[in-house]
Each structure stands twice: as C-alpha cells, then as structure tokens.
Amino acid sequence: MAEIPDEEFILKTTSACAGCSASLILRYVTKAAGKDTVLVVPACCTSVIQGVYPNTAMNIPVYNVAFASAAAVASGMSEAFRAVGKKTNVICFAGDGGTVDIGIQALSGALERGTDFLYICYDNEAYSNTGMQRSGATPLGASTTTTPLGKKDYKKDLDAIVQAHNPVYMATACSAYPVDLYNKVKKALSIPGPKFMHILAPCPPGWRYPSEKTIEVGKLAVQSGMWVLYERENGKLSISGASKAAMKKRIPVSEYLKVQGRFKTATEEDISVLSEHVENNIKKLEREVEGIC
C-alpha cells in the first residue's frame, strides 16, 4: 500500500456536485504531485469546482485557460520554468471535451514537441459542465441532452491517438481506484518528457445514478472490462491490478449499464455491440501482453 500523504491541496468544501469523482481525482493527483505544481485547467467542471474569485479551493497555483488551449499553455509554461532552472510540475487537468474534441490539436502538438508535462484527461464522457451534451468520448448508446435517443457513434479512441505520439509514459486510471491512480501520477511525474493519463470519472448527475454509488459505478466499469487500467512506459504495456482480474473473468457489460440512467435508451443491439467491443479490446490487449502483436 502506497504512503499517500495527509497534506491536502484541495479543500473539502468545493463547489463540486455531490459524489463528483473529478474532485476525488483532483485530490489524489495533487497529493501525488505535491506543492511544486501548477495546474493548467481549460473550461471544464474543474473551472467550477475550484470556487469563485477571490476565493479558491485549491492550495497550488491554478491557471485557467481557454477551452482549446490547455496543452499549448502548458507547453509555454513548462519551457519557461525549465529555462530558468525550475522543476515545477506542469499538469493539464482537462475534461474529455477539452481533450478529445476542441483541445486535441494543442495536445497533439505538445506531445509531438516533447513537452515536459503531464496531461490528464478526466473523462466523464460528455460536456458535463454545460449540462451533459455529447462529446467525442460519449459511449455508444448513452443518452445526453444532444443525443436524446442515445448516441449512434462510437467513443473516440483517445488512447490510440495519444499512443501514436509515442509519449514516454501513458496510463489509464479510474477514480474508484485511488491508490493505483496516485502511484501512476507519481511515476509519470518522475519521468521527464510528455506524459499522459486518461482517468475515468463517473458523474452522478450526467450518468444518472445516485451520488453515493460513484465508487461502485467506477468499479463496475473496470470489472466489466468497459474500462481497462493499464500503463505504458516507452510504449511497453502492463495491465494494472484490478484489470488483470477482469481480463480473466468479467461481469456482463449490462451490469455496468443498468445502474446508469443514461443507458436507458440503449438498444439490445447497442449492448451487444458494446460487449463485443469489450471482448475485442481485451483480446487485443492480451495478445500485446503475450507479445503476439
């Protein structure tokens, strides 16, 4: 068990919704990063979570930037710190819309240029801050306010896009597994160069489940194989603890879907497509772990 420090960098009374897993993620990310850290935050739920001027719920500098610009701002900030000999961690903390959609060009550029930073996408699978509109990260079948009959398109494969940039380190995590998340942030920040983490962030009002079930929903995502925890160091894949078990034995995808109101519109066909996708993805990862491809 990792020694997670007691020091808090996010106060207990934020303006996050009840059961918000993004603020839980923020708590463990900042604990792992420590004091010498700047967060770069584009428009997302965290713009709200940190509170209203002149107050802030954060105990490290937070630089709020335009929606599309987080990775580019971080690029300039990291270069400026390094130019004057400072090792300050520069961490982008962005939602899925700010990452897979409007911010992907800046992210691609910053990764390609070898920027010394950590980009974290906390993925609640929609534009939650504006009230749950579809994003490129919304899964097939999920209803949002702009896909009232359920999304007809697949979730964008962000990890494959990032992987194509060959970052020194990339990992997935989930708010329901804070120790795994903490350790991955620690490891990422110990390596110079471009690092990326994709963290599943269940959202009670957006996904429509009771707020006290936010950890349970995150665990179901991993246990069903809908979300796989892994890391890649210089491209080399290793599956993380909780997902190792799920690779062998999974609960049905429907167990994960049925606790969420957003999948009420999902058809039988959607569910079977999602299940098939999970099986294919896990087979692909298994083959990679075994060195077959």
């Binding site: 971080a74 300039g76 060009q105 800046a106």
Partner: peptide, 17 residues
C-alpha cells in the same frame, strides 16, 4: 507550435511565470 492559437497560448503560459 502547431498553430497561431497555440503560439499565443504558449506565450500566455510562459509569460504567466
């Protein structure tokens, strides 16, 4: 940088320090 939007964004991030 990969665009002008990002050139000004990078200047902002750098100047902020």
């Amino acid at each position: 940088v990969e665009s002008e939007h990002s050139s000004m964004a990078a200047c902002i991030g750098a100047a902020a320090t």
